[in-house]
Amino acid sequence: MHRSGAAMAWNVFKFCTALRGLGSIMILLVLGVVGVTYYSVVLTNYGPILYDGGLHSLTAVVVLILFHCLLVMLLWSYFTVVLTDPGSVPPNWTPATDEERGEADPLNGSEFNGLRPDPSNQRIRYCRKCNQLKPPRCHHCSVCGRCVLKMDHHCVWVVNCVGALNYKYFLLFLFYTFLETSLVTLALLPHFLAFFSDEEIPGTPGTLATTFLAFVLNLAFALSVLGFLIMHISLVAANTTTIEAYEKKTTPKWPYDLGRKKNFEQVFGTDKRYWLIPAYSDEDLRRMPALQGLEYPSKPDFDSQEF
């Protein structure tokens, strides 16, 4: 039995190591799909139409403008979530208050002296692997090998954990990916249907194959991303993460659900000018602790004894 457990732990370790090794491959794959799509939409199909004049030329202008605008936002969001640390626990972090005793009875330094992992101690969350205290909503990522603030999941596509500091950027990446792939699917649909008609299709075998491939890839991504987008919209509306949604199955109450508007603002901020771009205003970062990932407001009437 002991050997079986050790083998399982070793297999999980190798799996996590393999995921870390996928980094550059996944980024290259994303850029490859973008390159195939760009070649098909801009260079093969709609770029040449610009010189034809008439209504078709006007349609091409509209498609190309929308395509490039969405592509810029997609890549901006993608590389922001890739390059932004999701949030880690500060060194020697300790909670300012005990969640059960409230702010009127703060914890003091002596309570942490000689602290050891204790499953029966529900007042203080502790990570055995990192050997440190854990802020609220923080979880350990086996792939990254550290605790991540408000961890949602580890995403191989962005080669990073999705957590408190980059969750908005991840959602915007999904949003713009869905819009871009939907636009490309609709734009290439007439060209795709032409493959099954009796008409002679202009172009070399290489360009025709690229168009066919670009349509199939973008249709597949549009459908799959739509599912993820709907799921994460529901998570934001309830102020939960993917991990917390699973944990809530055994939790009668959820203290962080403050209503859809406030839940949305805890992810996207209050400044509407920044809602659709992968950035926050300085004012929001200054006055909204939730955006820093260490403190989260809860329902004023919530009884933590029942949580």
Rank of each mutant, 00 (worst) to 15 (best):
M1V: 15
S4G: 03
S4M: 10
A6C: 09
A7Q: 07
A7G: 01
M8F: 08
W10E: 15
K14V: 13
K14M: 13
T17F: 03
G21N: 15
S24K: 14
V36Q: 06
Y39E: 05
Y39W: 07
S40F: 02
L43P: 00
N45L: 00
P48W: 02
I49K: 12
L55Y: 00
L55V: 10
L55S: 05
H56Y: 01
T59F: 01
L64T: 06
I65S: 08
I65Q: 01
F67D: 04
C69V: 10
W76M: 13
W76E: 07
W76H: 09
Y78Q: 04
Y78W: 07
V81F: 04
V82E: 04
D85R: 08
D85L: 05
A96F: 01
D98A: 04
E100Q: 12
E100A: 02
E100H: 12
E100N: 06
E103Q: 12
E111A: 10
N121T: 07
Q122K: 15
R125T: 11
K134A: 09
P135R: 02
P135C: 03
P135S: 00
C138D: 05
C138A: 11
R146V: 08
C147R: 14
V148P: 13
L149M: 11
D152E: 05
W157T: 11
N160I: 06
N160M: 08
C161F: 11
G163A: 03
L165C: 04
Y169A: 02
F175S: 06
Y176W: 08
T181D: 01
V184R: 04
L188V: 09
L188G: 05
P190K: 08
H191Y: 08
H191W: 10
H191L: 00
F192C: 09
L193S: 10
S197C: 07
S197F: 02
P202A: 03
P202F: 02
P205S: 09
G206L: 15
T207H: 13
T210P: 06
L213H: 02
L213T: 14
A214Y: 11
A214N: 03
L217D: 08
N218D: 15
N218I: 04
A220C: 12
F221T: 14
A222K: 00
V225N: 03
S234W: 05
L235F: 08
V236S: 01
T242D: 09
E244H: 09
Y246L: 13
E247D: 12
E247T: 07
K248A: 11
K248P: 00
T250F: 06
T251M: 14
K253R: 10
K253F: 11
W254Q: 13
W254R: 12
Y256P: 09
D257G: 12
L258W: 01
N263D: 04
F264A: 02
E265D: 11
V267R: 01
T270Y: 01
T270E: 15
T270L: 03
K272E: 08
K272P: 07
Y274C: 14
W275R: 14
L276N: 12
I277L: 12
I277M: 06
Y280W: 11
D284N: 07
R287N: 14
M288G: 08
M288Q: 15
A290R: 06
Q292F: 04
L294H: 05
P297A: 06
P300I: 03
P300D: 07
D301S: 10
F302R: 10
D303E: 06
D303C: 01
E306I: 07
